[in-house]
Design a protein around this nucleic acid. Sequence first.
DNA 1: TATCGTCGAATTGTGGAACAATCTACCAGC
DNA 2: GCTGGTAGATTGTTCCACAATTCGACGATA
Lengths: 214, 214
Amino acid sequence: MVLDGSLEPGARLRETEYSNRLGIARHTFRAATQILIGEGLLRRSPNRGVQLAVLDSDDITDIFRLRAALELEAVRLVIEAGTELPDAEHAVEQLNNLPESASWRSVVDADMAFHRAIIDGAGSERLARAYDSVQSEILLCMAQLRPHYDKPSQVARVHRELLEPLAKGDLELAEKRFRAHLDKATENLTDALKAQEEVAAGHPGDILPQSAVA
Amino acid sequence: MVLDGSLEPGARLRETEYSNRLGIARHTFRAATQILIGEGLLRRSPNRGVQLAVLDSDDITDIFRLRAALELEAVRLVIEAGTELPDAEHAVEQLNNLPESASWRSVVDADMAFHRAIIDGAGSERLARAYDSVQSEILLCMAQLRPHYDKPSQVARVHRELLEPLAKGDLELAEKRFRAHLDKATENLTDALKAQEEVAAGHPGDILPQSAVA
DNA sequence: TATCGTCGAATTGTGGAACAATCTACCAGC
DNA sequence: GCTGGTAGATTGTTCCACAATTCGACGATA
């Protein structure tokens, strides 16, 4: 529910309400929320329960800053070790084979799989764990903002260009391209956020449900 | 208890035992462990409860790899923004003022404070959160391994050398020095681990309590 | 009318008991 | 010695209870 956009950003998750709705005990619900809090998807304030995280443009910048740090370290490790990345190449292939009319979701999935493959290629358990957390937040962003996506072929091309310097072992170029790519993504998301805020401007203090901006 | 070395690495934390000992309910203990699991200090296997993490030399390398990624990104951000780091300088000063006979703990604290100050200086909430997690693991390492530490004046000197390129805005030199420093720390810890394992070799499969190696 | 304080309801945080599912250790039998 | 089963321990979850805190409505006062 948190990640599929069916909850409004900032929504308060009352324990009795949600434990009843999900058919689980209140304790169990609390345990579940605790895990999500650890992943940064929910926030808890003492005696005031948990809320779905609200992401402003600073948060987006921040998420992608950490994402950049992690991915670039992964890139460094992959190049140093000369690791092959079949999963990443597979993801590019998949993007390339998607029809222009492909669903938003399938493009996002392939995109995510590509970046995930690079992290996994680095072979660092903790890098991967930290990336789990940012990836969750990115998914939350995506679910809430539904940013613009280029055509699959375009996305495929960009990602192939990311992979190129990795295969050649050119760290400097790889770093440059990844930073550019991630900066672009940040821009896309902040733009989407700005657009959403403008739509919501007519209802000050009110946050539109997903359906209103999709 | 997890961080002060009073628990053996790999120790299983039985719910009834510890909730009784701590005078809290089993539910409350479970909630507490869930938080520590999120920080990577405890591990949970389904139906087998939680254990204190056991860190082998691969884990140490891995922890410091992530640490390096985070600190270097922080360094980058600090240099880009030209941020002043009074807390870091204060930590160096503190190290410098410590007597040669200073307690192990006080050196560790000042060392930690120095690196923390750089992370905080970057002004990224999520970088700081990710660093919290590795810092906890580092503390766990330290508590379990008690690695060798140089004299405070020596430690102060090394850290002043880290700060230097930050003030001058020399990213390349900063990166080089930080990597060298962190690689050295990794080596220290893996050496300490190896030494501990050799001591424990007489008791195969057995892990010595802290007191036996301190 | 607007602001403030008070009180009651709702909600969270924690405790306690219970029970099914699972794991562990021990024991008997082959 | 290995296998299978059985009993006890442990975890995961549920239900109920209650103190502490917060939220919200109401009414008093300026």
